[in-house]
Simulated assay, not measured.
Amino acid sequence: MTQTLRDPLSKRRLKAWLRLLNVTRQSENHLREFLRVNHATTLPRFDVMAALWRRREGLTMSELSRALLVSNGNATAVVDRLEREGLVLRTPVEKDRRTVQATLTEAGIRQFESMAAAHENEVNTLFHRLDAEDLDQLRAILQKAVAEPE
């Protein structure tokens, strides 16, 4: 018999995981729809722009895909569309011309900052029932939850 089966909290931890997953999926679905309806964009596009906004000097396509936990192909497809719309600029890296770095254009920065402010407001609305103490406790619990198992 494994230790998990003898652990009296095992079922409760499983239920907590399922609840966390449910909240995450519902929130993500809501935000996907919010971005689609209010900004005519997708969550993957928003995520790519957010990653590039955080790293103003740009990211290589490999760095971008690692940061977003997606394949190079997925990141490239999103960047292709953003580049066609004038929101992202791709330039070869001087040291290795085979490597391409993506950066937001000025138009991309402006568009992302507008979407990001609305996105933050929508997340705030989604979680409005959580007060400061709730948020502190939730953060502490989640940090504790990702600690390496013994």
Rank of each mutant, 00 (worst) to 15 (best):
M1T: 11
M1H: 11
M1S: 13
Q3N: 08
Q3F: 06
T4Q: 06
L5T: 06
L5H: 03
L5I: 08
R6T: 13
D7N: 09
D7R: 00
D7M: 01
P8M: 02
L9F: 10
L9G: 03
K15Y: 08
A16R: 10
W17Y: 12
L21D: 13
L21V: 09
N22V: 05
V23H: 06
T24F: 10
T24C: 04
T24P: 00
T24L: 08
R25F: 12
Q26A: 12
S27E: 03
S27R: 01
E28M: 09
E28D: 11
E28H: 08
E28F: 05
H30Q: 11
F34Y: 12
F34Q: 05
L35N: 01
R36M: 07
R36F: 07
R36E: 13
N38W: 03
H39N: 11
H39V: 08
A40C: 04
T42Y: 05
T42S: 15
L43D: 04
P44K: 01
P44I: 05
P44S: 05
R45E: 15
R45G: 01
F46Q: 02
D47Q: 14
V48W: 00
M49N: 01
A51H: 06
W53Y: 14
R55F: 02
R56N: 05
E63V: 03
L64G: 01
A67D: 12
L68G: 04
L68I: 07
L68N: 04
L68P: 02
L68V: 05
V70R: 06
S71Q: 09
N72L: 11
V78E: 13
V79H: 05
R81G: 06
L82H: 03
L82Y: 03
E83M: 08
R84D: 15
R84V: 06
G86C: 10
L89N: 09
L89Y: 04
R90F: 01
P92E: 11
D96F: 02
D96Y: 02
T99Y: 00
Q101H: 02
A102P: 01
A102K: 02
A102N: 03
L104C: 07
T105Q: 05
E106I: 12
I109A: 07
I109V: 15
E113T: 12
S114P: 00
A116V: 03
A118E: 12
H119I: 00
V123D: 00
V123I: 15
T125F: 07
T125S: 15
F127H: 11
F127I: 07
F127E: 07
R129D: 14
R129Q: 14
E133M: 08
L138S: 02
L138A: 10
A140W: 02
L142Q: 12
L142H: 11
L142Y: 12
A145Y: 11
A145G: 08
V146R: 13
A147L: 12
P149H: 05
P149C: 02
E150I: 04
